[in-house]
Design a protein around this nucleic acid. Sequence first.
DNA 1: CCATTTTGAATGAGCGTTCAGCAAATATGT
DNA 2: ACATATTTGCTGAACGCTCATTCAAAATGG
Lengths: 232, 232
Amino acid sequence: MHLRLKKNETAVRMKLTPEVQEAAEGEKRGRKASKETRRQQLIEATIDSLAKRGYSETTLADVADGASLSRGIVNFHFESKEKLLIATLQYMADEYAANWGAALEKAGDKAAAQLWALVACDFDRKICTKRKLAAWCAFWGEAKSRPTYQALCGARDVKYQEIFLALCHTLKDEGGYAYEPEGMTLALCASMEGLWLRLMMGDGLTREKAHAAAVEYLLVAFPRHFTREGPK
Amino acid sequence: MHLRLKKNETAVRMKLTPEVQEAAEGEKRGRKASKETRRQQLIEATIDSLAKRGYSETTLADVADGASLSRGIVNFHFESKEKLLIATLQYMADEYAANWGAALEKAGDKAAAQLWALVACDFDRKICTKRKLAAWCAFWGEAKSRPTYQALCGARDVKYQEIFLALCHTLKDEGGYAYEPEGMTLALCASMEGLWLRLMMGDGLTREKAHAAAVEYLLVAFPRHFTREGPK
DNA sequence: CCATTTTGAATGAGCGTTCAGCAAATATGT
DNA sequence: ACATATTTGCTGAACGCTCATTCAAAATGG
């Protein structure tokens, strides 16, 4: 027989990850959680599942368990598994964009400081978590055969890369460098994505070391603008 | 009713990709294909399926169809789906290693020429195909949650990166550069993997442009050793 | 003929989706 | 205030489909 729970005991049924718990505590608990709160809770549980089991083994049952909710819940709040996954990717893309947008604001108006800030915030502890990198990577793996994912992953850096390109142009003028800006931008952005990939793979690579490698790149590309400690 | 075919008509049943066809023609055709030939044919069909449908939608039925063989065939030549996929990854890893190994041989004993050759062969038309990049990426996406894949993907660059690191050290001594070799190597390798990722995503990026971006990196990192046309 | 390779129907497990029903929250009537 | 009706959020059993795996039978080569 199913053991019926008194109210506000949902969080005790199974250990939730901190992220899911936090999402669930957005407003009131249990039954009164608003629609939006519940959606976010399920999205966080989806990220957990993607990170733990990979894309192909992520099941709705696992997501529901991760959120300590019942089997049918996802089809109630999202329409289908497909839509849950798209919402999850959208959520991560938004968070990513908001993060570098804010970093750019705070960086002031010097091009060198802006570039430094953009590179740094890719390795920020809020964004650059094992679980989130793993989730990104899971989507990348499926992106090629799914236009929707591809669009969302790609949209991630349409604006992003434009800004990078503009900064590379500015710094080239300021410093009299010889590189070709398009290629430089591409190689730099690719390097950071590659570092994410390696971070995700494990290998004992840490966020700090990855960031240091990216900085090393900045140093050789823009020697007149940066030292290892930051923009001159 | 199933229309039974006369012998040697297998290739007509369904259009095979050039790669699968070539694998099937390794020795004699049809029934007489040796065990090893048939395995290779199935592996090529697996790569096709991974590229076309992604990891999570790759089915044994699709692989069998792609090879124009019957449903049960994979479980006869490989023991299970899992083992087919591992064999496929192994196959690609071996091919990749053989490719850069050969390139290194031909490059002579100058460090600059060797580094140039290593970077170039990552963008070789034999290795850097849409379908193979897509297959690599499919495995990357699942690697984090599957130790076996992770080991095979990682083994790809244990030796590879050691060589890179040694070359970076040598060039630093020769050219009197100021960079820190570990970080430099990491950023360079990551950049090439990131470029692969972007090639796979589409975006109108071509092999040539990606290679040019990698070269741009070499130029800023080792200005005394390279021009855009090659090592000095 | 015997051994090997291949076939394709059958099997069964796993999973997404559906939906009738329950319980909490809220609205309505008295 | 209280009782009753309605809405909303959630549950979990049931359904049907897809797919890996199995295997008996057929085809082929030697």
